[in-house]
């Protein structure tokens, strides 16, 4: 059979681990997975620019609320734990997929979606409470940067939730096969990546605010 990705490189033998994995078995599996890793690198840079902006204008509060005034430890701690837990359950989904257990795979994906929804719910209520206190995006440069950085992460998570629901539907319909395996693996990467970004929001935004 000749395929688009015709050629297997000789170096490949040294990494034989992937050849058994379902997600690498179609010709487009390795391409999509490498492409997605590179996409994550670009997304990393996107967040880097937002973090840089935040750090530059973090103290530009224009007499309005500061980070220390706003952030409360219980709220962002719960968000962090929810997202860490969802990252864990997401990894369990891939684990079950690799053990060819469709039911558990679906189960863990659903749990991941629910945890993600919980995270988004708390974030939205946090934003609303700030807005009620008058700490809106229009108040100061600091708040513009805060809402944009954290909101960009939140919208990434929301997109991830929609995407994951679409994948749950496909797994339910077609079962564990190379295309779905690739999709589950890739959404897993995306989800863990968002967890990493959140860790830095937790550190650079929230903890910095609390400590300073």
């Amino acid at each position: 059979m000749s395929t688009l990705n015709h050629y297997k490189e000789p170096e490949k033998q040294s990494h034989s681990t992937t050849s058994e994995l379902l997600e690498y078995q179609r010709h487009d599996g390795p391409l999509n997975i490498l492409g997605f890793w590179i996409f994550l690198a670009t997304d990393l840079l996107l967040f880097a620019c937002l973090f840089a902006t935040y750090l530059v204008i973090r103290t530009h509060v224009d007499g309005g609320p500061t980070d220390k005034d706003l952030f409360e430890i219980p709220g962002f701690t719960i968000e962090t734990i929810l997202l860490l837990a969802s990252s864990f359950t997401g990894s369990l989904a891939v684990y079950e997929m690799r053990h060819n257990d469709k039911k558990r795979l679906l189960g863990w994906l659903v749990v991941t979606v629910l945890l993600g929804l919980g995270f988004i719910g708390i974030e939205v209520s946090e934003f609303l409470s700030y807005i009620r206190e008058g700490a809106t995006m229009q108040r100061s440069a600091f708040l513009s940067a805060f809402f944009t950085l954290v909101g960009t992460h939140g919208s990434h998570v929301s997109l991830g939730i929609i995407w994951m629901i679409s994948i749950i539907r496909q797994v339910a319909k077609y079962g564990i096969e190379p295309i779905n395996a690739r999709k589950v693996f890739i959404i897993g990467l995306y989800w863990h990546f968002l967890d990493i970004v959140w860790i830095f929001i937790f550190t650079v935004v929230y903890m910095t605010g609390v400590v300073s």
Binding site: Y24, I33, G90
Partner: peptide, 9 residues
């Protein structure tokens, strides 16, 4: 979690 060391090639 991310199977960082896995790769095809």
């Amino acid at each position: 979690f991310m199977h960082f060391t896995e790769s095809d090639g």
